Computed example of a mutant assay.
Amino acid sequence: MTNPLRQRARKQYSEPFREAFGDQVEREFIEQLDAYYSDPRSSLYIHQLEESFYKQRLDHVGWKPYPKDGLVTFGASGTDKCDLEVYYRNQKIKPEKRHDFPFRGRQRRQGTAIIEMVQLDLIHMPVRLGDRAKFRLKKTKSGEYAIEDAAQHRAVYEVEMEDGYKCRFAITAKPDGILEYEGRDLLFEYKTKATGLRTMNGKLDFKGPDAGHMRQVTAESLVFRINEGILLYESTQKPSWFSDEERKSVTKGQKTWREGAPLADVRAFYFSISAEEQHALLHHLAKQARNVYENTKPTVTPEMTNKCAFCDFFYSHCQADQPTKVIENLRQVERQMAKSHMAGKFEHRNLVEYLSAVPEEAGK
């Protein structure tokens, strides 16, 4: 399906009809995946390819520190963090390590394991499908598959801000893959969804790719100077092995087949990043980096609390570190939201959750 929020302009043709390039990329990528996974040989890996893939992964096992050049460095996947988390990460503050729900640990492990299999499958597709494999993993100059650590690159930027301040910082990126398609390079990012088939499809139909994921690929487009690519979403819930449309024991909201076909468990979205989007991201990161250089601690805003659930290191520290005036302002906003149409919605729940964990002595 077409992403309803795609910002790139599309021309409409009637006589003769010509498919828009982005639609073509999405359709042909899904067709390639379907052709491969419906092939009985897809579960049988070729020894030489499997060995080269895992040898490459072993070669990159280990921690690789950033160069000690004094620059704030943003990971592409971390460009959606709130201003305060970025500030804390670059201070001499000991990160907290919180216990989490066990299922979340299993969910993270599941996503990590599946992308490894997807990458291995992409390597096999040209062999199994021949010319039907239109998307192929590129190789680096050293002959490695262009995935993650083998493709990782760090780039330094200098942004002149409105008041003339010149802010230097770095972005590092290691995409899930760089693909070749019709003589052009495409960035590839893969995301798992554990919310279920219906929820995943409904959300993607309504909103398109996640804003944080788009910010990630925008950062990658800057680092690799590749402005287009594919975001692939896969639901970890799969359709019933056989049709459940006529099964009375399965409620309507739980059925995974519709009109004789299984619901989509993978969705591909083509993206094309504009110069304006890159410019906006660079200035956003420059603002965050400047806070670090000038030791200016950002003030918590209600919007920031929407990211707290994914802050693994500074959640409690943040709540205990806020001045009384900031906490009171957040409480006033929460009271207003509770009396408005926002009551009980996502943003309101996140703000309530944040305030519920603020210690009594905070700000004193």
Rank of each mutant, 00 (worst) to 15 (best):
W257C: 02
N295V: 15
T251L: 08
L232K: 07
Q216W: 09
D210N: 01
E277I: 01
R225I: 02
K248I: 11
T256K: 10
S235D: 07
V223H: 05
R267Y: 12
V250L: 04
L282K: 11
T296C: 11
V266H: 13
T256N: 06
R225S: 09
E234V: 05
I273K: 07
A211N: 05
Q237K: 12
H213S: 07
T296D: 14
V266N: 05
Q254P: 00
T218I: 12
H213D: 15
I230P: 11
A268G: 06
T256W: 06
K287F: 04
K203Q: 14
R215E: 09
T301V: 04
Y270V: 07
Q216C: 04
R247N: 15
Q216V: 04
S272C: 12
T296F: 09
P209L: 07
A211G: 04
S235H: 08
R258V: 00
F224K: 05
F271S: 09
A219P: 05
W241C: 01
E220I: 01
T301G: 07
V292D: 02
V223G: 09
F269D: 03
T296V: 14
G229P: 05
T218G: 05
K238D: 08
L263T: 01
S240T: 12
I230V: 15
A264K: 09
E277K: 12
R258A: 10
E220H: 10
E234P: 00
T299N: 02
W257Q: 05
F206D: 07
E228I: 06
E277Q: 15
E245R: 02
T301I: 02
K248M: 11
S274N: 08
L263H: 08
F269N: 05
E234A: 05
E228F: 05
P239C: 01
S240H: 13
K248H: 11
G253E: 14
R290W: 13
L204Q: 13
V292F: 02
A275E: 15
K252T: 11
E234I: 00
A275Q: 14
G260V: 08
E234D: 08
Y233D: 12
E303Y: 13
K203F: 12
V217N: 10
E276R: 04
R247W: 01
W257A: 04
H279S: 15
V217T: 10
K238E: 12
T236D: 06
L204G: 13
G260R: 08
F269Q: 03
D205C: 06
G212A: 02
S274A: 13
Q216F: 09
H213Q: 06
L263K: 06
